[in-house]
């Protein structure tokens, strides 16, 4: 029997996606470790990485990093295929869709904070929709909207500011303005 060797070609792009995804996964572990008063309210620190990826490498790379983050993060937290995984996936998909739209906003007026805000609102909207359709099929879940909206607003702005700050560090000569 001949041993078959499968060699995977690792392109620089792959390595970059893997590095960024690793950073995002690390941040989602930090996220999970921060105690929060209400399930579903989270800082979403990994989104900082997604924002920077989007700004630097474009939407396709951001999708890769985001989805790898969801899968690897779920595996590490023991959430894979549990409800939390699907909520995380739904949030990631809706916020990626929002980012696709946000990217077409004029950069002169709308910076990373706008992207972050739109993504965080879309994130919680997607999750809430999945909860309503699947986990808790009762309109009562919508009573949580004000709390979630407030959390999305606060953390969206903070993550956006953090992303701006890191962007300045990565590209000192190219401020986000």
């Amino acid at each position: 029997m001949t041993r078959s060797i499968i060699e995977l070609e690792v392109t620089p792009d792959d390595a970059r996606v893997a590095r960024l995804a690793a950073a995002a996964v690390g941040l989602s572990l930090v996220d999970a470790a921060i105690p929060m008063p209400l399930p579903g309210v989270k800082p979403g620190l990994a989104n900082i990485v997604i924002l920077l990826t989007l700004a630097r490498f474009g939407w396709r790379t951001a999708v890769w990093v985001s989805l790898l983050r969801v899968f690897a993060g779920a595996l590490l937290l023991g959430q894979f295929l549990a409800p939390g995984f699907f909520l995380s996936l739904a949030g990631a998909l809706t916020s990626l869709a929002a980012l696709a739209l946000a990217r077409s906003l004029p950069r002169r007026w709308f910076g990373l904070v706008s992207w972050s805000l739109l993504a965080s609102v879309a994130h919680i909207a997607g999750q809430l929709l999945l909860v309503r359709l699947w986990l808790i099929p009762h309109d009562g879940v919508f009573r949580l909207i004000p709390v979630f909206a407030l959390a999305a607003l606060v953390f969206g702005v903070l993550n956006g500011l953090a992303a701006c700050r890191l962007w300045v560090e990565i590209n000192p000569e190219d401020p986000p303005e």
């Binding site: 909207i145 004000p146 969206g156 701006c164």
Partner: peptide, 29 residues
């Protein structure tokens, strides 16, 4: 300071979000 990171559109969106959030409290409760 951090204020420099906020472009006019950002401020507009934050304000819009704030208003919608405040309105949502009586609406849903």
């Amino acid at each position: 300071g951090w204020r420099l990171f906020l472009l006019p559109g950002d401020c507009l969106l934050i304000l819009l979000g704030l208003v919608l959030t405040l309105v949502s409290f009586p609406l849903f409760w």
